[in-house]
Simulated assay, not measured.
Amino acid sequence: MKKLLILTFFIFSSATLFAQAGLKKGEQAPSFTAVDNNGKELNLKALLKKYKAVVLLFYRGQWCPYCNKHLQQLQDSLQTLTGKGAYVIGVTPETGENINKTVAKTHASFSIIQDKDYKIMKAYDVNYVLDANTVTAYKKYGIDLDQNNGNTDHMLPVPATYVIDKSGKLVFVHFDKDYRNRASVKSIAEAI
């Protein structure tokens, strides 16, 4: 329990050190094209022509219990979201192998994008770099970001959620630097 409290302190401390503010409700969503975990090419503009909305969520990795819980909640309510005309996309810096671990843990059947070069994370202003002390603390608890993300730059996203309407506007934003706070499925569904 003491180790968990120390890890929570390090994780929360690192989250308060970065300056990202995320995009705001009413702003135009940055467009992107990427390939998901199933090899499907996703283009935001094309998705918005086909669907009423896109739910875009950023998560840190399969090692994060808060991310896994949120992804599981979204999966459990996926029919509610898709029934309202939404297409759900997860964005993460983790490798394809680790995305597969996330899918195994959460049973996520929605699209997940490996944002290897952080273009989407940067466009939505959710990216930040962990400081060396936090990276060391993570390693002590078995979280190896180098292995998980396939690089050594230690960049993660704020676990943010956006709902983008057909016009490309952000109609819902949940951006909270406290990684433990996530958008509820109810609030996401109400925004669609």
Rank of each mutant, 00 (worst) to 15 (best):
L42F: 12
Y51A: 01
K50N: 14
P65N: 08
G39I: 05
L4G: 15
A29N: 03
L74W: 05
V55I: 15
L47V: 10
N38C: 05
A46Q: 15
L44I: 08
L56D: 01
K49D: 14
Y59K: 06
Q72V: 11
A29G: 07
A21P: 01
A21C: 09
Q20A: 13
G26C: 00
K45P: 10
F18E: 00
N68T: 00
N68R: 02
F32W: 11
K25H: 03
A53K: 08
K45W: 04
L71K: 00
Q75I: 00
W63S: 07
L44R: 10
K25N: 05
T16Y: 02
L44F: 10
F12T: 13
G61S: 06
F9P: 05
K45Q: 09
L42D: 11
V54Y: 02
Y51F: 10
H70P: 00
F12M: 07
L57Y: 13
L57D: 04
L4H: 09
L17C: 11
E41A: 13
L4Q: 11
K69F: 06
K3W: 04
L47A: 13
L7F: 11
S13D: 13
A34R: 11
K3F: 06
K69H: 12
A15D: 12
Q20H: 04
V55P: 01
S31M: 10
T8R: 12
Q28K: 15
N38Y: 15
E27T: 03
L56E: 07
L17R: 10
Y59G: 01
S13K: 09
V54E: 00
T16S: 06
L56C: 04
Q28R: 14
R60C: 04
L71S: 01
K40P: 06
K3Y: 08
K2T: 12
L57A: 07
L4I: 13
V54K: 00
A53M: 09
N38I: 03
I6G: 08
P65H: 04
K49H: 09
K3I: 03
C67N: 02
F58V: 01
I6M: 12
F10E: 08
Y59Q: 05
Q28I: 13
L5K: 14
G61N: 09
S13R: 09
I6R: 09
L7W: 04
L56V: 13
K2S: 10
N37A: 05
L48F: 05
S31Y: 03
G26V: 08
G61E: 11
G39A: 05
N37P: 06
L4V: 12
Q62D: 12
N37T: 04
H70Q: 14
Q28W: 01
W63D: 07
K24S: 07
K49R: 13
F12P: 00
K52Y: 07
F18G: 03
Q20D: 02
Q62G: 12
Q72K: 15
A34E: 07
A29V: 12
F58S: 06
K2R: 11
T8G: 09
L5Y: 12
K52S: 10
L17Y: 04
A34H: 07
L57K: 03
